[in-house]
């Protein structure tokens, strides 16, 4: 009897609940999708750098927060929002330049894991630097975006979330155009395909890296603004950025659409799991659900949803 009751709780009751309250269920899905957009934005930065330079940039999470913190800090010093935005972008480009000039340049041809560790070191460096300058307390980020909720056909929606989703979509569209139709974008794709061939046709690899890191910083800024406006800006948030990793696995390290779709799947999946299955095991399963989902997924498709097929040569 106990067993049947347990099986019912795990395999039946949640689904019954989903079907019997469809409006609540769709609200769960929508809030999951919107969290997913945040994950996607962080993951996008990882993908851009990985594609163009093969570096698994662990510091992306720190860059997101550094960008948001710089923006907030400048606004607190009386900068109007547009000036703060422009200055932050300049700071991020400077950061990209410094990273290329003083770190990546010396690590060319090293093993992947060395580069990975270097970016973890960079994470500490950025974090310490950001906190030294801007302090470590939580800073609220107010962009003047309304965050009122309204109803559409019985569904409760939040204006801010819609704004976040919208700007995420615009960002992805802009990036797609940038990558496909500009000269720099084509050069970036060439580098991503084959470093040596790209260098052979005269693409300056070092400049490309600066550009990629700047673009990733810009994407990080957008993600940071969204996260920051939602829950304040603080470096302890960088752990949330780790959530972008299962997203990457799900979508594939090398695929921009993969990062988006992966983010949405993870966002929705963990919200549903938390709300319908979480109470069974004491809650807070959001902490690990994404990883286990990605792990289970990997067993069936090691290269991710849209990743390039892994081909090995002996």
């Amino acid at each position: 009897m106990e067993i049947i009751n347990f099986l019912n709780l795990v395999f039946l009751a949640p689904f019954v609940e989903m079907v019997s309250y469809p409006i609540f269920f769709s609200e769960v899905i929508i809030s999951g999708l919107l969290t997913g957009v945040m994950y996607s934005l962080v993951a996008l930065g990882f993908v851009l750098i990985f594609k163009a330079s093969g570096v698994f940039n662990f510091a992306q999470g720190a860059m997101v927060l550094f960008a948001a913190l710089t923006l907030v800090g400048l606004m607190e010093h009386g900068f109007p929002i547009w000036a703060a935005l422009i200055s932050t972008i300049i700071v991020l480009i400077a950061l990209a330049f410094v990273v290329e000039r003083f770190m990546l340049r010396y690590l060319i041809n090293q093993e992947d894991i060395i580069l990975f560790m270097a970016t973890i070191g960079l994470t500490f460096l950025i974090q310490g630097f950001g906190e030294t300058i801007w302090g470590s307390n939580v800073k609220p980020l107010d962009l003047g975006i309304p965050s009122e909720s309204f109803e559409v056909g019985g569904l409760l929606l939040n204006e801010f979330d819609l704004f976040a989703a919208g700007s995420g979509a615009i960002l992805v569209a802009v990036l797609a155009v940038f990558f496909h139709y500009t000269r720099i974008g084509r050069a970036l794709r060439a580098v991503a395909d084959d470093h040596q061939a790209a260098m052979a046709v005269g693409i300056p690899l070092k400049n490309i890296w600066i550009i990629v890191w700047s673009v990733a910083g810009f994407v990080g800024l957008v993600a940071g603004i969204m996260w920051g406006a939602k829950s304040g800006v603080q470096f302890s948030l960088s752990l949330i950025a780790l959530k972008a990793l299962p997203v990457l696995i799900l979508g594939g390290f090398t695929s921009v659409p993969g990062a988006i779709v992966g983010g949405l799947i993870i966002g929705v999946g963990e919200k549903i799991a938390e709300i319908y299955w979480g109470p069974l095991v004491g809650g807070a399963i959001e902490n690990w659900f994404a990883y286990v989902l990605a792990l289970a997924f990997l067993l069936f498709r090691p290269q991710g949803l849209f990743g390039e097929r892994i081909i090995e040569r002996v």
Binding site: L107, G121, F124, L125, I126, F129
Partner: peptide, 14 residues
């Protein structure tokens, strides 16, 4: 301290 720690790691790797 955090900053120096990160710096030392990058420095050593280089």
């Amino acid at each position: 301290e955090i900053m120096l720690f990160g710096f030392l790691i990058v420095f050593f790797l280089i």
